[in-house]
Design a binder for these strands. Sequence first.
DNA 1: TATTAGCACTCTAATGAAACGAGTGCTAAC
DNA 2: GTTAGCACTCGTTTCATTAGAGTGCTAATA
Lengths: 348, 348
Amino acid sequence: MLTERQINILHLIIQIYTTTGIPVGSKTLMNDGIAASSATIRNDMMVLEKYGFIEKTHSSSGRVPSIRGYRFYVDHILKPASVSSNELAVIKQSFGKDFYAINDIVEQSAKILSDLTSYTAFSLGPEVKERKLTGFRIVPLNAHQIMAIIVTDKGNVESQVFSIPTAISSEDIEKMIRIINEKLVGEPLLTVYHKLRTEIPLILQRYFQTPSGMMDLFDMVLGKAFEDRVFVGGGMNLLDFGVLQDLHQFKSLYSIINDKETLTTLLGNKSGEISIQIGNELGNDILNNMSLITASYEVKGHGQGTIALLGPTNMSYDKMIGLIEVFRQELATHLVDYYRSLDSSQTS
Amino acid sequence: MLTERQINILHLIIQIYTTTGIPVGSKTLMNDGIAASSATIRNDMMVLEKYGFIEKTHSSSGRVPSIRGYRFYVDHILKPASVSSNELAVIKQSFGKDFYAINDIVEQSAKILSDLTSYTAFSLGPEVKERKLTGFRIVPLNAHQIMAIIVTDKGNVESQVFSIPTAISSEDIEKMIRIINEKLVGEPLLTVYHKLRTEIPLILQRYFQTPSGMMDLFDMVLGKAFEDRVFVGGGMNLLDFGVLQDLHQFKSLYSIINDKETLTTLLGNKSGEISIQIGNELGNDILNNMSLITASYEVKGHGQGTIALLGPTNMSYDKMIGLIEVFRQELATHLVDYYRSLDSSQTS
DNA sequence: TATTAGCACTCTAATGAAACGAGTGCTAAC
DNA sequence: GTTAGCACTCGTTTCATTAGAGTGCTAATA
């Protein structure tokens, strides 16, 4: 096992490397708090290297933490740094404005977090799948277009404009709306989605000759409602991570962080409240020298949301963890407040 | 004045430089079509340099076209290149799919044009300001939220969700809708905007104690409808222009092309159908080594739209002009078709 | 046995000299 | 007016040298 000094050395290497970005040598460590000679430190570093916690960039360079080193650090050494009162003020102030919709808060939170860290932040609102359908509207705009609106119980609204075949008259649409509202409103979206595939077509056939076109329409609207809404903040900060070899790499990166598909996979299904994935643990070659900190938060009764931070592997994990810890609580609080204001106005 | 050979030399310099990106020397010109010795060509180049049409990157380098040189070229020499049948096929195919809304076509056109050129493209739909308001809906979603929808005569729809103060009852909202529809529907948006500031508040005061909140709401929705919708395609292509000194510059650039404000200024008020602005003619330091080709197109009866292409100053103007010429006609045709299908279905 | 001083060795980064070559301007001849 | 020839300029590439930071190893020390 590692001695206490070896652990201290690993800790210090990470601390120094995450702030300076320069490989750390034995003398630097000696002058920066390790009470031993450079030779002794070198011996310890050899041990650490044997374990695979640190590595050299070339045969006679200082040491740099490896993925395993970071992993050991975040698992056993890291203590979240406390958040400066300054940063706290910024957070509180940024959340201080009025929001019209739930997604505004979620989107804004990604922006705040990225500004605060200079990294790239993601924000995924509380679980959509638990929501219930409280209203389904179809608004005829003209003979050729309609707008379909889905309203969920918690302030989430999706709308979409459709061109419709002239074959469907506005009377038929009225009928349609009535059916939908009778059969589907009040159900969780998941159930809605299910019924839409089983029960409803049967009923619709009584009224329409060809309900399939109408079904496609529903599919699209519901698809939109289902699609987890991921928001990205500070995508351009990628440029400053200092991990880019060439511009081509930036393009790949940028397309990754804007691909909802990839993102949802990346952010979903994390164990525990705060999870850290380092370098190749992310399972994506392009993200090899980046780390992702994912934090979920509970909004009582409304499922859980997720915020995440993507930065270089050599980020200051202690600072970031401390920050995210505060941030997610702040965000959860604001969402709870928002939901409460919604609930109270509905029951009054 | 310039001799014919001098003009040929300028033309060839531009042709070579726009394809290779390397400064052009006298020998290259001699081997590439100028029937004179390198010394003679050098003499002519000195003349061209006197006029400020070409310049050296250093005291003993080949020549590079200057802004004035490009300007002379596009004004007096340039002949639009014909579009390859391949490209034409791509254009037609890309426009072949079905579109739900007018803005889908406009947005898609920016994407197509940028893909085709590897530059950055902008697309600004036919003039919004000529549109008429054909419908204004307010859909109550729950006690706390409403969705306001604006419909214009030409398939354009804007919607926005609002949280409303509980002080306004749904009955009041109903009244509101009636008033709006009586007074405003059928009017051009400009008139709507005007009446909203003069007549309507008076009427509203009969029904509401405090109509100002409602007014803010209108302002926002109308603001959204007014905001010219500019779409950007291929923003990331900026990275490949080969004009970037550092990443900081890319950030500035990227924020410029995503700032609607700047864009509308950049694209608006062009004389003639196709306009070319080169380097500092754009009046923006950050765009100093870029050129913008702006083309407007007429959609009969529905105002004019604009497409534009931003590339490096050393782009192949002849190719691009040829392409844009075809492209804008194709786009106009498709928009006309779209409007016609809308009109015919409304009058039937 | 753990620690330390000392030293030879390795590798990177920075510096500068030299060679190369593409291109120019000028002069003199055609 | 055109051209051949030539000296000159300047950016680019190459190569060698040097300085410096850091290592691994060995032998001495507590």
